[in-house]
Nucleic acid binder design. Structure first.
Length: 526
RNA sequence: CGCGGGGUGGAGCAGUUCGGCAGCUCGUCGGGCUCAUAACCCGAAGGUCCCAGGUUCAAAUCCUGGCCCCGCAACCA
């Protein structure tokens, strides 16, 4: 059995989870479910990143210990995912003992191989920003943020010989078209590599400045730089260096947002190379959700709470919206208007109504039993062909991280089925008493709907499960998959005549909106 | 000239690799159907494809120059 390992980033615990975190994790959950349906042995990792300056300061401000502080925020992430219908296999924290041990083992290995050296590092240090500035970055010798005169500090630190692996990395990216996707981020990384600005990576912080981190195994006066620590979670979670899972599941693939492209596209592969480990299979990079054209931020007060939104509009509808609305890789804007529009147009009108009208006719004309089809006509064959084609497209696109386009391709079938209902007019066939033809049409519709429901399971597990149940098939559930998507896309079958289906369906209710003079959209009260 | 992405009917986007009648969803307007969740189906209106120049039988697409927006270069998915 093929194994499929996917990670989200480990989220930095300086704030509570928002829409962005939810998006990444929901996409990951959908991808994992998709691979389950392809019959693969999946492993889904998420977690929290808990070391570094910022955490230390945030904890101090609240007068608490860093550990106490990170415990609380980490729990808010950990507890959120099940409420959003997400089933991860492992939740890692960088403060976990086994992670800390793995980081030290990794450091030691790279150190022993001669790729970590002790060197002098000088720069203009700003205590406000807690970072060094280069001569070029200063504005008239002042910190660009704080406008204060900076001290030149010279400090000894440990460096990872990253530069040594950059030519290899460039070559690898050039040879593997889909290593970093979508393409625009691949282009960006290649530009980074060609700019010649990348140097060796400073991977230590002296304890005199920072204690909240993992101690270097070869020098206890220093702690490890957060990124070097954090990235290793992707293998420490598998039990690296000695756990059996690591050998069977690594290399996996990663899902990240564009802001952390560089650490994942440059630091991490070179780190793996230096440690003699295989590099990951794919880095999937997505954009930002904007709210009224700007980035979400606490100070603007436009942070979207995923749990509240999910509960208000329905978890599955919310998941569908996130996957469908954002072109993977690009930024997208979030608004309740857009969400309601997707729910009504795509889910209620197109899909839900199709489901409802077909089941209702099946009840009326065949007492809710799947009828035996007779001779197929040209338009029936066209529908079957379109449906299978759409399934195959879906599999290809979803597997290539084009979730929006994948779902769009499914809707081609949904729309075609609505047209097919109209053009075949089962009610007219019924009136005319053409039972053979009526049976064929209904069988086509029910079969196509079942296929569609299968593809929807990764995006909307609960709704798709109910659709399948209403079609007399077992729900997919969270158990090992009972469906093989690849096989299902090869033949227009799966619904045996005689199967009992539901009499009616209301899985995707319409949201009634009332437009006020101001243009605001309000949820109407029933 | 730091790097990257983008500017296409009212809104959101595809199309640009490799030039060939400007396409999709939403919204608006008109019609149809009566199986269905005021849904569904058909049709229509609506575009100087950011600007200027160039190449070409032909440019959203290629070339040159310019304008505007966004992101990265700093630990917010």
């Amino acid at each position: 059995m093929n194994s499929f390992f996917l990670t989200t980033p480990i989220y930095y615990v300086n704030a509570k989870p928002h829409l962005g975190h939810a998006y990444t994790t929901i996409v990951a959950d959908a991808v994992i479910r998709f691979h389950k349906m392809l019959g693969e042995d999946t492993f889904f990792l998420t977690g929290t990143d808990e070391h570094g300056d910022k955490i230390m300061r945030a904890a101090e401000q609240q007068g608490r210990s860093p550990q106490e502080f990170v415990d609380e925020i980490s729990a808010s992430f950990h507890d959120l995912w099940p409420l959003l219908g997400i089933r991860h296999d492992r939740f890692i924290r960088t403060t976990d003992l086994e992670h800390r041990r793995a980081v030290q083992a990794f450091l030691q290995r790279v150190y022993d191989a001669g790729d970590i050296y002790f060197g002098e590092f000088g720069g203009h240090y700003c205590y406000g920003c807690e970072r060094f500035y280069t001569e070029k970055e200063l504005e008239n010798g002042l910190c660009p943020q704080h406008k204060t005169r900076l001290e030149f500090i010279s400090e000894k630190n440990y460096f990872f010989k990253m530069s040594r692996y950059l030519p290899w990395l460039k070559d690898h990216i050039e040879k593997h078209e889909n290593f970093i996707r979508p393409h625009r981020y691949r282009t960006e990384v290649l530009a980074m590599l060609e700019s010649g600005e990348l140097e060796d990576l400073c991977i230590s912080r002296p304890k005199t400045r920072l204690q909240w981190g993992i101690e270097l195994p070869f020098d206890n006066a220093y702690v490890c730089y957060v990124w070097f620590d954090a990235l290793i979670n992707y293998i420490s979670a598998l039990g690296w260096p000695n756990g059996p899972d690591c050998a069977s599941r690594w290399p996996g693939e990663h899902l990240v947002a564009k802001d952390i492209l560089k650490p994942h596209a440059v630091f991490w592969p070179t780190m793996l190379k230096a440690a003699g480990l295989p590099v990951y299979r794919h880095l999937n990079v997505h954009g930002y959700w904007l709210v009224r054209d700007t980035k979400m931020s606490k100070s603007l007060g436009n942070v979207i709470d995923p749990l509240e939104t999910g509960r208000r509009f329905g978890l599955d509808a919310f998941r569908y919206f996130l996957l469908r609305e954002m072109r993977f890789g690009e930024d997208a804007s979030f608004s309740e208007d857009a969400l309601i529009s997707r729910i009504n147009a795509d889910l209620a009108n197109d899909l839900g109504n199709l489901f409802s009208r077909v089941l209702s006719m099946a009840a009326k004309y065949f007492a809710s039993r799947v009828p035996e089809p007779s001779v197929l006509m040209r338009e029936d064959e066209a529908v079957a062909e379109l449906c299978l084609h759409s399934l195959q497209n879906f599999i290809q696109l979803f597997g290539n991280a084009q979730f929006d386009t994948a779902l769009e391709s499914l809707w081609e079938t949904v729309r075609a089925l609505n047209k097919y209902v109209d053009s075949q007019a089962p009610w007219a066939l019924h009136k005319r008493g053409d039972t053979a033809r009526l049976a064929t049409v209904m069988h086509m519709l029910l079969t196509a709907m079942r296929k569609t429901a299968l593809c929807l399971w990764p995006a909307m597990p609960d709704a798709a499960g109910r659709m399948l149940e209403q079609l007399g098939s077992p729900a997919a559930g969270n158990a090992p998959p009972v469906y093989d998507l690849q096989r299902e896309s090869g033949a227009f079958d799966g619904l045996a005549p005689g199967t009992i289906v539901a009499e009616t369906s209301n899985i995707f209710p319409r949201i009634d909106v009332k437009r006020e003079p101001s243009g605001n959209v309000k949820k109407a009260k029933n």
